[in-house]
Design a binder for these strands. Sequence first.
RNA 1: CGGGGUGUAGCGCAGUCUGGUAGCGCACCAGUUUUGGGUACUGGUGGUCGGAGGUUCGAAUCCUCUCACCCCGACCA
Length: 567
Amino acid sequence: MRMTRLHAPTLRETPKDAEVVSHQLLVRGGYIRKLAAGIYDFLPLAQRVLHKINRIVREEMDRAGAQEVLLPAVQPAEIWQESGRWAKYGPELLRMKDRKGGDFCLGPTHEEVIVDLVRRDVRSWRALPLNLYQIQTKFRDEIRPRAGLMRGREFIMKDAYSFDTDEDAANASYDAMFAAYQRIFARCGLDFRPVEADTGAIGGSRSHEFQVLADSGEDAIVSCLECHYAANVEQAELDAPAGDAGAAGPPLETVPTPDKRTIAEVSGFLEVAADRFVKTLIVDADGTLHAVLVRGDHELNEIKLAKLLDADTVHLAEDAQVVAATGAPVGFAGPVGLTGVESIIADHAVRGLRDAVVGANAADAHHVHVDEGRDFTVDRFADLRLAVDGDACPRCGGRLKGYRGIEVGHVFFLGTRYSEAMRCNYLDESGREKPMVMGCYGIGITRIMAAAIEQNHDDKGIVWPRGIAPYQVAILPLQMNKADVVGAAEKIYAQLVDAGLEVLLDDRNERAGAKFADAELIGTPLRIAIGGRGLKNGIVELKVRGGEAVEKIPLDGLVDEIRSRLQ
RNA sequence: CGGGGUGUAGCGCAGUCUGGUAGCGCACCAGUUUUGGGUACUGGUGGUCGGAGGUUCGAAUCCUCUCACCCCGACCA
């Protein structure tokens, strides 16, 4: 492709609405433009990258035995009502009516559609296992889209659904997808981790996320330094610490803490470390208030709490509810003498805590020298907090290290949740009707593009992994007024194109600096610079994007050299 | 939805406080120049100042309403 023909409007300045580096570089490099919040145009360079990613995904999915289909983006409400999710999904599901007043939605995911498809035509155990996938635009009306392609409202996703006769077979399907995902993300040039994950709204019992390690990632994960265990902090199980309560502390006292509400404020004011605090959170679980205690330096994991209470929704209580339950303004709640809640639940780390600091259930006051068991009692202890750097590994006892991650893929073992709700049954060998056992598997295609940039860039621009770069080589004739330079560039361009390579020829009448800058911004893996000086000696200059060295390469055998560099 | 912020040319911004009929840089077009790290100069195209209503002789500027977008939080691929 010639740069004079390529529609890739590059910008010198960073658009002010782009915060994360992938968003900035995609806009500056002429890859994407924004149409509305979380909704983007994909320009030719981006489309090429997406094609590359899609091709890798298709190859690996096909190889794993899955078959590609294409399902409708517009879906009738009936199937969502059947699965129960029309009521449950909430405002993230973009709903609409057709001219006759019928309810429809834009698909945020396709369990309902695929189950409807399979249940109609698959009746026999002989047809299983079956794994169908598609690459398609999804729509989720996010509360807050952000970070460019990282969290869009409209995005491209590969979703796959497996159907099996029983749990063992379904687990084999899950394992096959898990292995395919490892190959896919590796081929995309990503540094990633599969981590154990919560099953969330989709439901099910077994789940892994594939997290690309990046400081800008939205997800927090922990990974064991000793063994292979890795998990989302929401999921990571934390064992109860050995219960050595120790000797009783001094008697309880009440101290004034004027206008000091947060742990950090009170900790600084009383000069007591945060891990000697008990944080008392008043939570609303399906309309019932509970007090939840976690150590001052820990954070409540609402997912674990919701599971413990078997609640559909768990959230921090409104200010007025807190005042009614504790008799004090927000910031001064504590477990001592607390009666305004259904129960007091505590994280394991609160068990046996001595000489602690808690809110006094009165404005501007805290209790100090508080002992759990002596000064307050807990109705039940459980694992309720988010894992943090330094926690013990639940598998081997080693130390967990914290990372930030971008979730590019997620695999779920669904079981029979959808197949039972929607009567997706088959006849087994003895003629009995049974629900199919399902799994579902997603990959954020557009998110991979952003994640790859988050992980591979420098101050000049994108440094594409080889496997997904829009073009493999950029040719820069540095002096457009010199016929020999232009001629050599054209000749090399023709040779490389003939050799089947993806080449960008910068035939614009720009000065060398502008060409270097744009080539680095766009991020092609290889760059060939052609100048009059080198040509006299029969050489051109080769630079690997992301590397330091500029190599002088003879014109003779250049094509073979380039080809070998791209291996 | 709560908190904070921004809307003036494709991009980045000034002008708003103190009303007088819109400007700068980049990009784009024409020409000259330059040609190994965003060359220089000249000329030029392009704007219902987010929208509606109001105040006023006169509104980008003041008032009211509204919309969009960004960031933080609660939600999720």
